[in-house]
Design a protein around this nucleic acid. Structure first.
Lengths: 214, 214
DNA sequence: AATTACATCCGTGCTGTTGGGTATATTGGC
DNA sequence: GCCAATATACCCAACAGCACGGATGTAATT
């Protein structure tokens, strides 16, 4: 088996450096590139001819989910190992749909990381032990007929409004900032709540965080 | 100067391994111990005779802030370098009060980490460049006559209320659930906002997330 | 041409939140 | 036993947000 060409993507430079350092000690791996800018990652991955991408899920610019989709659309053979802090159902579902080859929680150590890489190199799928049960449950739910109503896509304007709400601005303040009427902001707000099926600001912020909107 | 005895505390094993690996490459440092369990950290730190603790701020069991307070209470000479994802004023204020010797954001690389360690070893205080301005602003506020009411620690009851707010419950619902009057919930809510200096639910949820309350 | 999605705007009345007080019972540490 | 912190509860005024209506114009799609 040839040495995997690994590319690392994570918002936090220190995490990139850490993983790189971890993998370089045991020199079965070749790190062909790293970046903290997820929206520039795909180009670099293509240029460096990487065949295994280790990516964080929660990133500012482009989420690990979106990055995975792009990678897989470009070349399905490029393997993707996702790292995440949380093991919630929504994230796991999204990752499976995006086509990740592996998923480990950040609270696992080097051993699990190298296990995951080996497993993926062999063409298998690796999921953290801690999330397997959750994963299975979520898969069941995905296949169930209920909840097929994907809460439709939010428009760019609506996402912008969510961000401003998250910045603790009132409708009036948002209106001022965007040069639109407070009424319009109210309407957007209404539509956001309707579309996402959320009833309170508290829920909205949590939603926004899981969706990487903020 | 003698080699610093470094102890690493972070919820995420992979982060611990990463930092350890980063510091071991350049072997000016001796890692005397690591842990992912913050509430067990103090004992280990004492046992290993560490003189520099690198700790994450956002941890489940015991926050980096609380850990720092305990360390400094035990022996003020033990240096503490805090790592955090966010550079918000509230966190920085709390850290300063807790007595950290340095603070770096996780999106900085190895170089800044080693700089920080060197600076701290020399007895100085190191703060990430990205947060210096914010920090100064917050210090000003701390020193100003207004707002001397350090937002003291939140009480267990208050934290419970925050959790329920985060679960999208209204004051009335929370009152029902806790068998207390809606008025009481309002009072708790008021006190929470006053103590934390937050003005909206949006801010509260973000605060709660950074504080691992939810 | 018709439809759909998006973004903009407005009124009215109701509910909920926020912030100003004040006050009492309980608890825990010293 | 005392004091501080905590948890409890109430009143009230002001404001923000929400529900329920409505409306217009544009752009893209069918």
């Amino acid at each position: 088996m040839t040495k995997s060409k690994i590319f690392i993507v994570d918002d936090h430079q220190i995490m990139v450096d850490g993983i790189k350092s971890l993998l370089e000690i045991n020199n079965n791996y070749e790190i062909v590139g790293t970046t903290t800018k997820s929206n520039e990652a795909l180009n670099s991955i293509i240029n460096t001819n990487a065949n295994l991408v280790i990516t964080d899920i929660n990133m500012d610019e482009l989420s690990g989910i979106e990055l995975t989709k792009k990678i897989k659309a470009y070349n399905f053979e490029i393997k993707v190992l996702a790292l995440s802090m949380y093991g919630d159902k929504a994230t796991i579902n999204e990752m499976i749909e995006a086509g990740v080859d592996g998923y480990i929680l950040k609270n696992t150590g080097l051993e699990e990381l190298t296990n995951a890489i080996k497993t993926i190199e062999m063409g298998h799928v690796f999921f953290s032990n801690q999330v397997t049960l959750e994963m299975l449950k979520s898969i069941k739910e995905v296949n169930s007929p209920i909840e097929t109503n994907e809460f439709g896509h939010l428009t760019p304007r609506e996402i912008q409004i969510i961000k401003l709400i998250a910045e603790e601005m009132s409708n009036a303040e948002i209106g001022d900032k965007l040069f639109i009427s407070e009424r319009t902001v109210e309407t957007h707000r209404k539509n956001i709540f309707r579309k996402t099926n959320i009833k309170s600001v508290a829920g909205l912020i949590k939603y926004a965080i899981t969706q990487k909107i903020i």
